[in-house]
Amino acid sequence: MRTFLCTDDGVSIDSVYDPASVVYDGSRPPSRDLVFVLAHGFTGDVDRPHVRRVVAALTDYAPVVSFSFRGHGRSAGRTTVGDREVLDLAAAVAWARALGHPRVVTVGFSMGGSVVLRHAALNAGSDAAADAVVSVSSPARWYYRGTAPMRRLHWLVTRPEGRLVGRYGFRTRIHHRDWDPVPLSPVEAVPRIAPTPLLIVHGDSDGYFPVDHPRMLADAAGEAAELWLEPGMGHAEHAADDRLLARIGVWAVSRAG
């Protein structure tokens, strides 16, 4: 099922619902009450092969709602690189519940990982909150430029010629304005998420954000969060293999299923 959702600030968001798989390994059938809402990384979209691979893996455990953030793919608007994107995720979570799933697990990668953390913090204790949160390869703090990939990303976002490359090279339309005000950072968000179950996943070979980022997040969250520091794993969806996605699926069902 495919549709366009409208966010609270009037942006049209391309969204897809994939039912749970009808074939499973025999250990247990997929959950029908639970639904995953998948938040992709920067320059991704709902039709990218690496995003579809994650969707396919998670449907072994529950249905999946995926969507393209604003400015990505066929969604309208321009990306704010993690700020207003919380409204996109909120629209997707509301749609998932409207489809009849009482429990929602948000799963985000990289930029999407920061968005699921902020969404959980901003909606803590409300009907709009997720029932469990998985953040993969998220930054802990804003404006990080300590690695070459992040310096290239900042050029893409902050320079007019970079935004042209984003539009025509990556199908990503980037807003030209700076954040005002600066949004709540991920490390400021995580203490507000408890008692919602939180899983932080990060690779020890991540080329974008070194391991001090997930450790900062886990320290800030305290006992409310689990940290999986994955040996040899790189960054985000491309680096998340099927075994890791299966472990995430099992964790989600055990916490919110």
Rank of each mutant, 00 (worst) to 15 (best):
F4C: 11
T7R: 00
S12V: 01
I13K: 08
P19E: 14
V23C: 08
P29R: 14
V35D: 03
A39F: 00
H40D: 00
H40P: 04
F42T: 13
G44L: 01
R48I: 01
H50S: 11
R53L: 04
R53I: 03
V55I: 13
V55K: 06
A56H: 15
L58P: 02
Y61P: 05
F67C: 12
S68H: 12
R70V: 00
G77A: 11
G77W: 06
R78A: 03
R84Y: 01
R84F: 01
V86H: 07
L89V: 00
L89F: 01
A92G: 07
V93L: 02
A96P: 06
R97S: 08
A98P: 04
L99R: 15
H101D: 13
R103G: 06
R103E: 10
R103N: 05
R103F: 13
T106G: 04
V107M: 10
V107A: 08
F109Y: 15
S110A: 07
H119W: 14
A124F: 09
G125T: 13
D127P: 15
A129L: 05
D131M: 07
A132R: 11
A132W: 10
V133Q: 12
V134F: 05
S138A: 15
P139V: 08
P139C: 06
Y144N: 01
R145T: 14
A148I: 13
M150Y: 10
M150W: 04
M150F: 10
R152V: 04
L153N: 12
H154L: 02
H154I: 01
W155M: 10
L156E: 01
R159Y: 01
V165M: 07
Y168G: 03
R171H: 14
R173T: 14
R173P: 13
I174Q: 02
H176I: 08
H176K: 15
V182E: 15
S185L: 12
E188D: 14
A189H: 07
V190I: 14
R192D: 03
I193R: 15
A194P: 12
A194M: 13
P197T: 02
S205N: 13
S205E: 13
Y208I: 01
F209Q: 00
F209N: 00
F209T: 00
D212A: 01
P214N: 01
R215S: 02
L217H: 05
A220Q: 08
E223V: 10
A224Y: 04
A225W: 10
L227M: 09
W228R: 10
M233S: 12
M233F: 10
A236K: 02
D242K: 03
D242H: 12
L244W: 05
L245F: 11
L245Y: 11
A246H: 14
A246M: 04
R247K: 05
I248F: 05
I248C: 00
I248E: 02
A252L: 06
S254E: 15
S254D: 15
G257Y: 06
